[in-house]
Every structure is written in C-alpha cells, then in structure tokens.
C-alpha cells in the first residue's frame, strides 16, 4: 500500500451520549468494506469505541483521526479536556473518575483504557492537565490467510 495512505478525521462532542459510538461505527464500516478480517475489525471497533467514549465521558470535545498505513492502522484521538493527571493509575482495571450520573448510564466501569491496551499493538497516551489528551493506537492486521 506504499504511498497510498488513506486518512479520515471525525469530530466527537463531549457529553453527547445520543451520538456516542457513531464515529467508531464509521471506522468499522470502512474496514469491512476494505475486506479486513472480521475478528481484527472487532478489535479495532472496541478500541476506537472506548477512545471515543472517553472523549464523550471525560472531555469537552475531540477528533478521531484514522489512517490506514502500509502495515498498520493508526488511530489518534485528541481532545480538549481536563487531561489525565496520573496515566499509570488511569490504566488500572476498574479505575474510574466518572461521576455518578455517567455510571448510571452504564459507563465508567474503568475498563476503557485496559480494553484499548488489550486490543491494540501500541498504545501511547500523552496528556496535559487542564488542556487535553492525545491517545495514539497502532493496530497491525493479521497476515492474509491464503
């Protein structure tokens, strides 16, 4: 796929629970159209959904950049929001600062970042408290089965 990188960018609104998930559905549709392995698509869907939801739940607004590179997919989600003070702590299973009203909606189980880790090959988080967060995920598709 040399020199033929495909890129998309989608806006994500904070606190817009009605439309939450639409961006990761788009990513998924694209991968299906390109004929990626179903199990791989599922993993990408979960990782991008969690990243999208973190913007919806914790930040004001953000953008999901999605690129198909020669050997991998790259998803970068950047947001304007409170940032993450202690990333190692945030990565722990079950750790969540989600307020009660978000938990009542069934989110905020503290499994988002761990699930992203599980479903990606690389996960890098850079965050500035008071400014925002950048989450970068790299996912390599399995080799074709033929």
């Amino acid at each position: 796929m040399q020199g033929k990188a495909l890129e998309w960018a989608y806006e994500i609104e904070g606190k817009d629970f009605r439309n939450a998930g639409k961006v990761s559905s788009k990513v998924k549709e694209i991968l299906k159209e390109l004929g990626f392995d179903p199990a791989f698509v599922r993993g990408v869907a979960i990782a991008s959904y969690e990243a999208e939801m973190n913007v919806v739940c914790h930040a004001e607004k953000g953008t999901l950049h999605f690129a198909i590179l020669p050997e991998a997919l790259k998803i970068v989600v950047e947001d304007q929001g409170p940032g993450i003070p202690d990333i190692a702590l945030a990565m722990q299973e079950g750790y969540s600062t989600a307020p009660a009203e978000i938990r009542e909606m069934g989110f905020g189980a503290g499994m988002g970042l761990p699930n992203m880790k599980k479903n990606t090959d690389e996960l890098n988080i850079a965050s500035t408290v008071g400014k925002g967060t950048v989450v970068e995920m790299v996912i390599r598709p399995p080799l074709p089965r033929e």
């Binding site: 796929m1 495909l6 694209i30 299906k32 159209e33 390109l34 004929g35």
Partner: peptide
C-alpha cells in the same frame, strides 16, 4: 464477510475507496 467489500485485492479496494 466479504459480501460488502469493495475489491478482493486490498490495494484495489483502497484505491476504489478513495
């Protein structure tokens, strides 16, 4: 799974999608 894909050849699929 591939009923909806653009092309059997991944390179062509990417090109077609563009």
């Amino acid at each position: 799974p591939f009923a909806g894909r653009l092309d059997a050849d991944p390179l062509k699929a990417v090109e077609k999608m563009k």
